[in-house]
């Protein structure tokens, strides 16, 4: 067991190193930040550019810059933004909770929709309701998400004026972004819930519970749902990583002050430290979640350890 843990851990560290190396290298191909910073200036000489590169630390060799970054990773010091000199850690500290909260709310929305729908589909297996639920949940998956977002804004913020169109400011502001992202997951989650419920419902103790004359809702939501909770939670947890990767577009439409907005601005501005830090933090979270899931599986199912 210890061997398995160590192996998985070493693999994760290897992935972290390769990912950060690729990211650091790729970012430096996006172009020269010094040119970017001087594009509004009247006339710029090569000397000016050299000076600015020096001030930004870009005159050092790539590996030196990379190791500087790795070192910073341990002390949570990611340097300063090229655009304005704000500490990257300050920017991250503001943006990370915003993104995580949005991802989390999206997951909640999706679960809140898919559990009743999934259960209904399972109990009416093969009937019209089952078909309809699956098709409807696929409709949600088929929307271009920014278009859906714009339509929601048009309806709920401009026409009905029920919800704020953008920004992060209290409970109402979470509804539209979370629904936009949550709907995408719903198709998958309805299917997961349906499958899990179908397996559970055929089990002996459900028959017993029904035989005892318990109401159908008690049987479904108390007995059956509780028993398939663990695999479902694992699946939902795994989706967290995927959510984080796809959040940029939705953040942009809703002007959400999260990591996606931060990174999107940073690419345009060639703000290496910010972009590098955001991608690295997101990657670390994805790697971390995958590692946890692997370990959890390994603990539960010994066969995986040997694979």
């Amino acid at each position: 067991m210890a061997g398995f843990l160590i192996k998985r851990f070493l693999q994760a560290i290897f992935v972290v190193i390769v990912v950060t190396l690729i990211v650091a290298f790729a970012i430096r191909l996006t172009g020269d930040p010094a040119l970017m910073l001087t594009q509004g200036a009247g006339s710029v000489t090569e000397d000016d550019l050299v000076r600015i590169r020096e001030a930004l630390g870009l005159n050092q060799p790539f590996l030196a810059q990379y190791f500087g970054f790795l070192k910073g990773l341990f002390t949570l010091d990611f340097g300063r933004s090229f655009l304005g000199g704000t500490k990257v850690s300050t920017l991250l500290a503001a943006a990370l909770p915003a993104t995580l909260l949005l991802a989390f709310s999206s997951l909640i929305v999706s679960i809140a929709i898919s559990i009743p729908l999934g259960i209904k589909a399972a109990t009416s297996r093969g009937k019209w309701a089952d078909q309809l639920i699956r098709i409807l949940s696929l409709v949600g998956l088929s929307f271009p998400n920014f278009w859906l977002a714009l339509m929601l804004v048009l309806l709920f913020a401009i026409t009905l004026k029920w919800l704020p169109p953008s920004g992060m400011s209290g409970f109402e502001s979470f509804i539209m972004p979370a629904v936009t992202m949550g709907i995408i997951l719903t198709a998958t989650n309805v299917r997961l819930v349906r499958t899990a419920m179908l397996e559970t419902l055929s089990a002996q103790y459900i028959m017993v519970a029904r035989a005892k004359g318990l109401s159908e809702n008690v049987v479904l939501y108390k007995h059956a749902l509780r028993n398939c909770a663990i695999p479902l939670i694992t699946y939902f947890g795994l989706q967290f990583g995927g959510l984080l990767g796809g959040i940029v577009v939705v953040e942009r439409v809703f002007n959400w002050p999260g990591l996606g907005t931060l990174a999107f601005d940073a690419v345009g501005a060639r703000d290496y430290p910010v972009l590098q830090a955001v991608i690295t933090v997101l990657s670390l979270m994805i790697i971390g979640v995958n590692l946890l899931v692997d370990i959890a599986y390994g603990l539960v199912d010994p066969r995986i350890r040997t694979e």
């Binding site: 990912v19 690729i22 984080l244 796809g246 940029v248 955001v278 990657s283």
Partner: peptide
């Protein structure tokens, strides 16, 4: 490595 990279970014 591939799976650890956030796609849109």
């Amino acid at each position: 490595v591939q799976l650890a990279m956030p796609f849109i970014l």
